[in-house]
């Protein structure tokens, strides 16, 4: 049903830490693996061993270079999957009701048996989070691993999205944004989590933590200066200092013990 729920009980989603993501694509492939075998049709690959391989993926890792005003160019790895928007335009455009937002937790899903593969929802999504599967002709998107997070066949600790469970760097966090005390809410507050393309007024649930400032050790600022004050200018002086320093060591022999 393409009417958006006026509110959802929970707001499940991801926090993605751009300061931590090393761009390893682990989340991309574990997502592919889980969702090929689970929810709905397999994620197909066309021409998989040929000249123009093109497959369906629900999560992709971009990378961007940012040139600060001064200093070296920075590189940011940027994973992107469905943001499970509060005002999800992909849902309201869907003519069949295949796209919907769950009232329990806000997860945006496609009911594949209702989908006619018109592609309009993908047109409506600003983030490129939906891909039409070439083999099955239905729309595919991140399910927030709805078939994992409540799955009683999985041990409790594994009831998180496949991409979160696998992320080696711990750059992906899963939780309930409706709860201000949740891990994801607190991270978002502490690190200034942001929305992507706020001007699109989709009100994404997923948040991105911006990279921390970089390259600040440029010169020996005043507080660091004393750290490198020479103990002496020549080696004779250095060995004089050494003798005294050795005597001062806590584990070293006391004066009367020595010689």
């Amino acid at each position: 049903m393409t009417t958006l729920p006026t509110s959802t009980d929970r707001k499940l989603g991801l926090v993605i830490d751009l300061d931590t993501c090393v761009g390893c694509h682990a989340c991309v492939i574990s997502c592919k693996g889980w969702n090929t075998e689970n929810y709905g049709a397999p994620l197909a690959d066309e021409d998989p061993y040929g000249a123009d391989p093109a497959g369906t993926f629900l999560n992709r890792v971009h990378s961007y270079e940012v040139q600060p005003e001064t200093g070296a160019t920075q590189l940011i790895h940027f994973p992107k999957s469905c943001l499970h928007c509060t005002d999800a335009p992909c849902v309201t455009v869907c003519p069949t009701g295949a796209s919907y937002k769950r009232v329990e937790d806000g997860i945006v899903l496609v009911n594949e048996s209702d989908c006619i593969g018109c592609g309009l929802c993908a047109w409506a999504c600003p983030y490129g989070a939906r891909e039409l599967d070439a083999a099955e002709g239905v729309m595919k998107k991140c399910t927030l691993c709805v078939d994992r997070i409540y799955n009683a066949h999985l041990p409790e600790e594994d009831r998180v999205p496949a991409c979160v469970r696998t992320c080696p760097a711990g750059a992906r966090h899963f939780g309930d944004f409706a709860d201000p005390e949740s891990h994801v809410s607190r991270l978002t507050a502490e690190r200034g989590g942001i929305d992507l393309m706020p001007e699109q007024e989709t009100r994404p649930v997923n948040k991105y933590l911006p990279p921390r400032p970089k390259d600040r050790l440029q010169e020996q600022v005043d507080i660091l200066a004393p750290l490198l004050a020479p103990v002496s200018e020549d080696s004779a002086g250095f060995f004089g200092w050494l003798d005294k320093a050795l005597d001062r060591l806590p584990g070293a022999p006391s004066k009367d013990e020595t010689r």
């Binding site: 393409t2 455009v93 003519p95 069949t96 009701g97 209702d114």
Partner: peptide, 10 residues
């Protein structure tokens, strides 16, 4: 099925 969502879908 495409006739069902006239309330929201153009």
């Amino acid at each position: 099925k495409a006739f069902s969502q006239w309330r929201t879908s153009w």
